[in-house]
Amino acid sequence: MVPEALFFSAILFVIGVVGVLTRRNAIIIFMCVELMLNAVNLSFIGFSRLYGASGQVFVIFVMSVAAAEAAVGLAIIIAIFRHHETVDLKNINLLKGWCSNCPWPNRVECIRLPAPSPSWCGCCRYCR
């Protein structure tokens, strides 16, 4: 049954990837990452049917790392929620330098502004 297990594992992994690429809720994206870890665990178990019990040991390691990742990641999400009042990743783009509410979402036009316009949103550093 190992080829079937690898088949299921591939499909589950791809479902997780598509979820990460299409969703915007940070918690759901985290759950998709957990789904991808589970898919890899399934192929580890499948290969442990062929190559011995080391695969099961790796599954245990993956589970402990996933537990640590869930704890730290959810703490980060709580901290972000406290700061932004949202977990929608559309609104969390500090590293981009401008915000999604910005009326000039293009950085070049933002810099070209002569002075703080009356309609500046003040939420990104190029519009400030």
């Binding site: 299921f8 589970n38 665990n41 399934l42 178990i45 442990s48 099961q56 599954v59 245990i60 589970m63």
Partner: peptide
């Protein structure tokens, strides 16, 4: 599936931990 592939302990851990 883990239990059906002879990894009973990992199956139990999957239910408990995950």
């Amino acid at each position: 599936l883990y239990i059906m592939m002879d990894a009973q302990f990992v199956g139990a851990i999957q239910v408990l931990v995950y």
